[in-house]
Design a protein around this nucleic acid. Sequence first.
DNA 1: AGACTATATGATGCGAAAGTCATATTGACA
DNA 2: TGTCAATATGACTTTCGCATCATATAGTCT
Lengths: 83, 83
Amino acid sequence: MKQFARSPKDIGQAIRQARKDKNLTQKDLAVKSGVWQETISKVETGAASTKVETLFALLAALDLELAVLPRSRGSQADLEDIF
Amino acid sequence: MKQFARSPKDIGQAIRQARKDKNLTQKDLAVKSGVWQETISKVETGAASTKVETLFALLAALDLELAVLPRSRGSQADLEDIF
DNA sequence: AGACTATATGATGCGAAAGTCATATTGACA
DNA sequence: TGTCAATATGACTTTCGCATCATATAGTCT
């Protein structure tokens, strides 16, 4: 079940989704990924930006990866969705 | 043509690929995305980490988006690929 | 080879992310 | 509702990305 992402917020939602699907708490994921629980909270809620390393550490701990693909479907996200 | 990514380096390569496919220089992309040419260079070569906002700014300027999906195919990337 | 363009590298300053610890708030459930 | 676990928030410090400018290196074409 694939999640598309055009903004940090999208990614955060996908991570939270995947974490819950695997029945992990933020603390569990923190231990697995080496990322602090507090940081995970911020990432999932989109409260703060993230470094790409942090993102991949979380994705790896959740057995996820990314695919880069052309924006075909749906409407364009405007810059406010990103910044 | 889809690019999978499990590390910042993978993303950098995908961005470079997409940029060249569109016949854009780093400078062109810098103008379109609002990200400095120097930063793009670092991102593409994987020399430095990036903020997720920067990543999405580049992807948007290249009409790309991400998909989050389970790591199924191929071998696992180990942590050195990420950090 | 020379000239021009593209990309990489290097230094500095600022701001923001992450680590860290403490605590508040929310959520679940007996 | 009271308690415990889960998540969010806040403060503070350190680390690091980005903007910025300058310059070096690499590529390309004549």
